[in-house]
Design a protein around this nucleic acid. Structure first.
Lengths: 345, 345
DNA sequence: TTGTAAGCGTTATCAG
DNA sequence: CTGATAACGCTTACAA
């Protein structure tokens, strides 16, 4: 273009305050430069981390984010699915309710979709966190500490993550010949609190409790406090998620770190890849993100390690490939954790 | 419409898998049923709460959310602003960098915009949190507890919230004839940690520290622990924000609750109202949301209240209209807080 | 009830 | 390099 023309155009742009119209542009280009995110609800911690991961990856490629969360029933969710047509180039979906047929009837065929923490059923791309492996690792860690009677507080019934964590618990306990003791929960603090009240108190009460998520573990901890049951001296406790609070409570909670931001970032990367290559009818892609055991005080391992100073930790030899163990001491920001060292002097 | 025709159409819809095309539709209707949210960055706590509030309000009116966060410089932010044209019906903006002229040159004139925690300059609708009042209240509360030398750890230099909190501190201290002691901070934990090291240690060290946000208060707490300075016995501590962790740390933190979700919800309500009424050239609307002092253990007030059982709290008479006081005991979910009662027996 | 035509703001194509 | 024209998928209005 000639410089003179350029100038003339830019002057016109400025004078008319011209700004291109997104809808009109994407109508003809068939590109919106937007990825849609469909969530069941806005869980505080989880949601914010997930979005952060997605946003970072999306923006790096010049994409926007259309967030859609639906409290509600399937029909509402399906409506949102439909509303996405012509507004986004692809979809990241986290929804236990939605099934293959739902997508096929509410979306143009070949529409790029990545499923989060759900079974892709060999039809859709999917990515999930290794809930099973993480659960297995925690329970084996507790078993390695000598616990034989380990209770498990479950998550909500139809939740995929919850089911996988339960499966890990069962397999680990069965593998060690232990007894199963499952208490119903729903991922909320109160559920943990109430589960504590339903624990058997006979001659052989559980010596350890594993909650399907940290929130319930905190509920349990609270209930134990009220009954003057000490953690970890009287009962060991472990959670799942590694929410920020986990390291700040007393005692700091042994838990499984879930790479939520990574989950979002990886999902986005894959989605953008799928968008880029058109609808090549390639084999659906599937990925499992490793989880990581974070050993803090609530399971009693640190107490024991301090007592029998240089004894090798037996649990470490039993870890599945996809899960690593890390004690809190090794984390680089532990300087700022409010640990209960002072209380224990 | 005749039932027979209806049926025929629905059958066709199902057979062709017809889904309306959002871009095409909004091109002619000039409505996208989407609100844009422009954020400087995705702060964990703050961001997630804000989005929750916005989303709830937006969805209630059938609107979607287009989230756009820009780490970056102004030119990047301006580009995002432009990209919003034809994709959203209105904009909620939280950005200290953006000024009036920026909006005027990058958006169609009369485009509905609501500014968050920024000065609307009588040109735009705006809504903000009463940082000043909250700050005033905390400091007066500390003064009411007998503190005369209160240190303040500031937020980042160009931050609007930080500036208002600083102003509240200065006015409250000046009003009581106290001494000002300001330590530089930036809202991050480390800043609080380091500020503790810079506190004067002479004959009259500060007897209370007020951090411009909770994260820094936690950093301070951590530093105090390492030096065996007890909170609140040796030094009183207060923060700002009431992040979830605040109630779980030891000791629970006295702080100011900021209604972040409300901020988002109110902003959305106003934006949708503005969208609905077209561009009536009405006077820009402005709202300030009240903050609330939450008294927990870290300021020493509860300790004192327990000692001198039924003494009326002097601070309560000095509160500005827009801020209320509430002790943790009255909060309905305190049953689940991990409070340090047991440690103190 | 059904069919037809115009137009929303772009991009793409093809002559001049 | 410029200008005209078609098309994207929809809504709206009006005619049949």
């Amino acid at each position: 273009v000639r410089e003179q023309t350029r100038q003339r155009i830019h002057r016109a742009i400025a004078k008319l305050r011209y700004v291109p119209h997104g809808a009109a542009r994407s109508l003809i280009t068939r590109k919106t430069h937007t990825v849609g995110v469909l969530l069941p609800d806005l869980f505080g911690e989880f949601f914010s981390e997930l979005i952060r991961g997605i946003d970072l990856a999306a923006r790096r490629h010049g994409y926007h984010l259309l967030v859609s969360s639906s409290h509600g029933d399937r029909s509402e969710t399906e409506a949102m699915l439909r509303a996405m047509r012509g507004r986004v180039d692809g979809l990241i979906v986290l929804s236990p309710d939605l099934d293959g047929p739902d997508f096929e009837s509410n979306l143009p065929s070949g529409f790029p979709v990545v499923l989060l923490n759900a079974d892709g059923k060999k039809i859709f791309d999917s990515i999930r966190v290794d809930n099973y492996g993480g659960s297995l690792t925690v329970v084996r860690h507790l078993i390695g500490l000598g616990h034989r009677s380990i209770a498990f507080v479950t998550g909500p019934p139809r939740n995929h993550d919850a089911a996988e964590r339960l499966r890990g618990y069962r397999d680990a306990v069965a593998g060690a010949g232990g007894r199963l003791l499952e208490l119903d929960g729903d991922f909320r603090e109160e559920a943990g609190y109430r589960a504590a009240g339903r624990m058997p108190r006979g001659k052989h009460p559980p010596t350890a409790v594993f909650a399907a998520n940290d929130a319930m573990a905190i509920g349990l901890l609270c209930a134990f406090r009220e009954r003057h049951i000490r953690v970890p001296e009287d009962v060991a406790l472990a959670g799942f998620d590694d929410i920020p609070i986990a390291r700040f409570i007393t005692p700091p909670l042994t838990t499984v770190q879930v790479p939520i931001a990574d989950l979002g970032a990886r999902a986005t990367a894959q989605l953008l890849h799928a968008i880029g290559e058109g609808d090549a009818r390639r084999k659906p892609w599937e990925e499992v993100l490793p989880t990581r055991l974070v050993v803090r005080s609530s399971c009693g391992a640190l107490l024991r390690a301090r007592a029998a100073a240089a004894a090798p930790r037996s649990a470490q030899t039993q870890l599945p490939m996809s899960t690593s163990v890390q004690s809190d001491e090794e984390e680089n920001d532990s300087r700022f954790s409010i640990s209960p060292k002072e209380e224990r002097r």
